[in-house]
Design a protein around this nucleic acid. Structure first.
Length: 303
DNA sequence: GCAGGAATAT
DNA sequence: AATATTCCTG
């Protein structure tokens, strides 16, 4: 009795993706901040490298303030700019925003447990800059979360469930997303084949079964999260901006247009990463660390 | 050697 | 706590 049984989830999925035109003008923001900062030049893209604006990872390690050049570290640190930077440098910690996590969950849901491995998930997500490691790490945590849920949902029926701080925190991200149940109980969707390969396969499949009963389980956890404590401000003490846009490695037939997302400029005391969530307010919860983070802004209501 | 997964580190 | 890195295994 599923009225939502849409045969081509993929079509819908791509529909909700922002189009290149809808993206925020991340023209100048994508500049290699490191170099820009190091050289004390305004963050502008003098000569936008053609087709080379993905992943603005400018990994740098000095916490150089705009007007303040690095004062530590070796002076000679010209970060390899260019396509090399995308893989040569260490990127800032990836921040799994709800939007990004959504992509993740979607991908995992569509792939099914069987195919939901770091690499495939990463490919399906098509997020530029996202690495297999990023996904693997997140996946590990996600699995723990799912496992917890299973255990709790079946073990605890009535009594209050004291959730640890960790759980509460985890839920902010995980529980706030649709949990494709197929993951919990059954194995992948019937896609025994190359689920994600649809990109290359014209006649793709039409399987999909997500957000089913998990909602019920979630209900026992939503309490804390409705408070809106979303200080997901990953504070970067250094405040650097990093572009992050969906990878355009899509298929020839113009199957879909993924697009980039806005990029978050996280500054020391600038609540820029505030998503327009419930009432995430401007909870300036900066950790005070000097870390550069990669944030993915919500380009549009993907939910 | 690559990729997944758990352990461990930051 | 959230991610990243490392280690081990297939």
């Amino acid at each position: 009795m599923r009225e939502e049984e849409e045969p081509n989830w993929f079509a819908r999925w791509e529909e909700e993706l922002p189009r290149p035109e809808e993206l925020m003008p991340l023209s100048q923001s994508l500049i290699t901040s490191d170099l820009a900062l190091a050289f004390d030049i305004p963050t502008q893209n003098p000569s936008p490298v053609p087709g080379l604006h993905h992943l603005g990872s400018t990994g740098n390690q000095h916490s150089a303030s705009p007007p303040l050049p690095a004062d530590l570290e070796s002076p000679d640190h010209s970060a390899p700019v260019g396509e090399d930077s995308a893989r040569t440098l260490k990127r800032p910690r990836l921040v799994w925003t709800p939007q990004l996590h959504k992509r993740f969950v979607d991908a995992v849901a569509h792939l099914g447990i069987k195919n939901a491995v770091p690499k495939t998930i990463m490919q399906l997500m098509s997020v530029d800059g996202l690495t297999r490691e990023n996904v693997a790490s997140h996946l590990q945590k996600y699995r723990l979360y799912l496992k917890r849920m299973q255990g709790l949902s079946s073990s605890n029926a009535g009594p209050p469930v004291p959730m640890s701080a960790a759980d509460a925190a985890t839920e902010q991200l995980f529980a706030s997303n649709p949990i494709p149940h197929p993951l919990l109980g059954r194995g992948a969707s019937a896609l025994g084949q190359e689920s994600f390969m649809q990109f290359m396969a014209p006649p793709l499949l039409q399987h999909h079964q997500q957000m089913v009963a998990a909602a019920a389980v979630q209900q026992q956890y939503y309490h804390q999260r409705q408070m809106g404590h979303f200080g997901s401000l990953a504070t970067g003490g250094g405040g650097y901006d990093h572009g992050f846009h969906t990878r355009g490695a899509l298929p020839p037939q113009g199957l879909h247009r993924m697009a980039a997302s806005g990029l978050g400029m996280v500054r020391p005391s600038l609540p820029a990463a505030s998503n327009s969530y419930d009432d995430d307010d401007d909870v300036d919860s900066r950790v005070g660390g000097g870390r550069r983070v990669l944030t993915l802004f919500p380009t549009c209501g993907e939910d």
